[in-house]
Structure formats: structure tokens, C-alpha cells
Design a protein around this nucleic acid. Sequence first.
DNA 1: TATTGTTATACTCTATAACTATA
DNA 2: TATAGTTATAGAGTATAACAATA
Lengths: 151, 151
Amino acid sequence: MTGKTEDTVELGEMENSLGLLLRLAQVKNFNAFYEFMNNGLSPGELTVLWVVGLNPGMRQGTIARRLLIKAAHMTKLVNRLVRNGLLERLDTPEDRRSVFLTLTKDGRAIVNRHKRQLAKLHQTERAALSASEYRQFISLLKKYTGSGNTQ
Amino acid sequence: MTGKTEDTVELGEMENSLGLLLRLAQVKNFNAFYEFMNNGLSPGELTVLWVVGLNPGMRQGTIARRLLIKAAHMTKLVNRLVRNGLLERLDTPEDRRSVFLTLTKDGRAIVNRHKRQLAKLHQTERAALSASEYRQFISLLKKYTGSGNTQ
DNA sequence: TATTGTTATACTCTATAACTATA
DNA sequence: TATAGTTATAGAGTATAACAATA
């Protein structure tokens, strides 16, 4: 199978570059996502729906900060999901600057469907790794990102 | 939930989602990149320059496939780098459809400067991890992405 | 004055498809 | 016919700044 139709690309130190590897990993992960999750939703949209489902009535800014989504983009993303009937903005007397979010019935249905597909996706995602390697991979990612922190 | 715990976002199973963690990691990594690499170049541009430097005269399509850059985007990226005087297209008699790439003098200077800053960046990137954790992190990323393969 | 969210602009990257010029 | 690259279009995500309403 070593047909040498494709040249071997020398990467040097870049082969151990965290930045490049994270990008390659994300592309691979995106492909797996779109293969298993044909909801017509992007990973970002689905994540926001999921988080609103677990935190009904939470301010959109709080969610955006946790997911490292910029405020301007969060507005567009929420607009899209509201337009598609998956998300609702709640007007609140508590703080009338804020926007509080909740899922619609359709939104909850999408999240539940996603939940059932999540297992299949995870199974595919870790095909290249053993169970313990996968656990460690997740653990290191959490440590690197400082996940668990509020911000 | 009576007493709203301030700003604590519940993620549920999403807390162990490879996709979300990869995104959070990439944002963190991008921030580190822009903090240490003030070349006016994006990570993608610098990576292409680096790879061309290590593989002078290679076809741009070959490099694009290895870095998972789509052909259409690669064209724009190369145009930008050529316009900025960092990259040169070589016309070749061998296959006149192909575009072969090489660095200009300025391009080589940028890559060398980047090389010296890479150590500092890597030091920052692994601040949250021990040396052995960092090594394992890289190793797992390579395994997950199938890095080492040509494609 | 500071904060929450919105609007506007611009740029990077992705995804497709149609196109050219070679092979 | 197939391949290498280009062009065009659309959309997602990011970054920044200016802005309105509210606190």
C-alpha cells in the first residue's frame, strides 16, 4: 500500500504542537458529530440548547461566558434558535436588562433525541483509544482547560 | 432549586464531552498563541509557512490535505501570504496544473522568529499540566487524530 | 458609572459547487 | 475522464467597537 502517490509531509517540531493537534482533533470530532447528529444543528447550537435545558431560566450571558462564546455571537446564536422555535427569551422583572432563556417543547425534544445519540457518538469518538486512554484524554483536557471553574 | 447558586452552570454529561472540551482547549490555546506570537499572522498562516519551510517545493494541495485545510481556503491563504511577500508560487514544467511553494527571505525570517518563540509558548501552554501529563496529552492527541498518517 | 445585551463591521475558516487548464 | 487549483457564494465563529436600556 506504499504507493508513494502522496508525498510525506515533514512537520518537524510542529508534529508535537498542541495548537495543531487540537485543530486536527477538532476537525475529526466535527466530522464525527455531523455523521451521527443530523439535527440540522451545529455543535454550538446543540450545546447551548443542552445547557439551557439543564439550567432553565439562566441568563444568556452566564451561559455564554461558561462556553467561551462571545456576547455578540451569543446574540446571533440565540436569535437563530428562537427563530427556529427551539428557545424562548423570558422577560423578567428581576433585571430588565437581562435575557433569561428556556427551551420550548421542540427544543426539549431535540435535546432528548441528542441525548440518545450521544452514546453512539462517544463510542465512535474513542474508537482510536482504549477505554482508559479515553478517560485520561478527557481528564487531561479538563485539567488543561480548567474546566470545573465557573469561568 | 430555591437559592439560585450564583453563576454555576450545570453541564451534566456535557462536562465530559470531547467536542466541548476540544473547543474550550482550542480557545485557550488560541489566546496563548496571540499572546506570545505577535507576528500579525494567524495560527493557520504560521503553520503553513512552517511546513513550507520544512518541505520546500511541495505542492500546495499536499500540504493542505495534511493540515486538513480545504482546497478553496488554501488558495485564499496562500494568496494572502504571497501578497505579503512571505511565500512564492513556483511554475514547474513537471505538472503545470500544480502549484509548488517555497518561502521568500522574509518568510524564512518569520519562521525563524516563530521558532524562537515556540519554546515560550509551549511553556505557557503546559502551565496547568506536569511535564509527564503534557507528554501524555500530546501523545493521546496524536493517537486520536491518527497523526503520523499522511492523510 | 457600570452592566446586559444588541447592532454593525470585518476577518478567519468551513462547505459546496462551478469553473479553468492541464493531464 | 480525472486531477490541481481557482473563483464564487454562503454560513459559522471570532474580535472589536459603538450603542441603548437598565441598574
